[in-house]
């Protein structure tokens, strides 16, 4: 799979269509984000497999925003899975990235990764490989839906009790681009307190994921307390889909809540 990407990226770089390609590199025994600017470096390009398939995914869209802010006139390529592509589409609608300045190079996720993520669309619209994994059932959400209300409460409070308030869920999120953030505002949630006010801190963030969350799960992976944040935001996405027939990143349409 990475051979196809390398070929594609080499083309893009040599033809001058892109200034650089934001992907993942294996270097010094680690995998991390890297901006490839010449073909010779492409040997070290990887798709983020470490111990398991795709377990070294990174918020590349977030890196891309940093670069685009500084160099808005240049075009960059970026490695995208299904979730990353949803992120790009949503970021375009929020005017955080310019679609004319981004070239997405897509890869489909293997079924085991799609299953682990319970992903609804584990592949981008266009990708370098043919085999696409099937969409998955949302078991994590339905298993909580099936609990008695008191058990649900106990479960979430047990999880929120562990929060160490690193803000990693927000800091890693490709869709969290606001300069002023509600979860950091002392008016809404007392700052300086561990654990942060329960369940206000997490519900406030969940509400802000309405029309935003593209279900990449990076928040879940970044959480030092292993709080199942992805499940919480999946539920939010389900509710919005039911009410407004809208899932961010699955169409080019703007969020019904987007007033920009």
């Amino acid at each position: 799979m990475s051979e196809n990407i390398k070929t594609k990226v080499a083309e893009l770089l040599s033809s001058g269509q892109i200034k650089g390609f934001l992907g993942l590199r294996s270097n010094e025994g680690h995998i991390g984000p890297y901006l490839f600017t010449n073909e010779a470096e492409l040997d070290s390009l990887v798709v983020g497999d470490w111990k398991n398939r795709g377990d070294s995914r990174y918020p590349l869209n977030k890196c891309l925003i940093n670069i685009a802010c500084k160099y808005p006139e240049d075009t960059f390529g970026v490695l995208v899975r299904g979730c990353d592509e949803r992120g790009l589409k949503a970021l375009y609608t929020w005017n955080q990235l310019n679609p004319n300045k981004v070239v997405a190079v897509g890869i489909a996720c293997p079924q085991e990764l799609a299953d682990a993520c319970e992903c609804l669309k584990p592949y981008p619209d266009e990708c370098v490989d043919d085999e696409k994994a099937k969409a998955c059932e949302q078991k994590a959400v339905s298993s909580i839906d099936a609990l008695a209300i008191a058990d649900r409460f106990a479960l979430w409070i047990r999880e929120f009790t562990k929060c160490v308030k690193c803000y990693g869920c927000r800091d890693v999120c490709p869709m969290c681009f606001c300069k002023e953030c509600s979860v950091g505002s002392d008016d809404l949630i007392h700052t300086g307190q561990l654990p942060p006010e329960m369940p206000i801190f997490h519900l406030t963030r969940a509400v802000h994921m309405i029309g935003r969350c593209i279900d990449c799960g990076l928040c879940n992976e970044a959480c030092p307390a292993d709080i199942p944040l992805r499940t919480l935001y999946k539920k939010v996405a389900d509710i919005i889909d039911k009410e407004f027939q809208y899932r961010p990143g699955y169409t080019d349409a703007k969020s019904p809540l987007n007033v920009l």
Partner: peptide, 15 residues
Amino acid sequence: MNVMRPLIEFCGIEA
């Protein structure tokens, strides 16, 4: 409301 009620219910608080 239509959003908040199912959300808090998911977290174990009666709508």
